[in-house]
Computed example of a mutant assay.
Amino acid sequence: MTAETITAVASGTWTLGDLVVNRMGFGAMRLTQNGEAFAADAVPSDRARAITVLRHAVELGVNHIDTAAFYFSPLRSANELINQAFAPYRDELVIATKVGPGRDPSGHWLPHATPRELRGQVEENLRQLGRDHLDVVNLRIVGTDSIAERFGALAELREAGLIRHLGLSNIRPHHLAEAQAIAPVVCVQNMHGIGASAEQKTFLRSCGEQGVAFVPFYSIAGIGRTAGASTGDSAEVNAVARAHAVSTAQVRLAWTLHQGPHVLAIPGTGNPDHLAQNVDAGALRLSGDELATLDSVHDEAA
Rank of each mutant, 00 (worst) to 15 (best):
T2S: 15
A10W: 00
T13M: 01
T13Q: 08
L16P: 08
D18T: 14
D18F: 00
G27L: 05
G27S: 08
F38I: 13
A39Q: 11
A42R: 15
V43K: 15
D46A: 13
A48C: 01
T52D: 07
V53N: 01
H64P: 07
T67D: 03
A69I: 11
A69C: 12
F70M: 13
P74E: 06
N79W: 02
P88S: 04
P88G: 07
Y89V: 14
E92N: 14
E92R: 13
V94I: 15
V94K: 10
P105F: 01
R119S: 04
Q121Y: 10
E123P: 03
D132Y: 07
D135Y: 04
D135V: 10
D135A: 12
V137P: 11
F151C: 07
F151D: 05
L157P: 04
G161A: 11
G161H: 09
L162F: 05
G167Q: 09
R172N: 04
R172I: 04
R172T: 06
H175W: 01
A179M: 05
V185I: 07
M191L: 13
H192P: 03
R205A: 15
R205P: 04
A213N: 05
A213Y: 02
F214K: 13
V215K: 11
V215A: 12
A221Q: 01
G222I: 08
G228H: 05
T231G: 15
D233M: 09
A235G: 09
N238L: 12
A245S: 14
A249V: 06
A254E: 02
W255E: 05
L264K: 13
L264S: 09
T269R: 14
G270R: 15
H274S: 09
N278K: 10
R285S: 06
R285Q: 13
S287T: 15
D289H: 14
E290H: 10
E290S: 14
L291V: 08
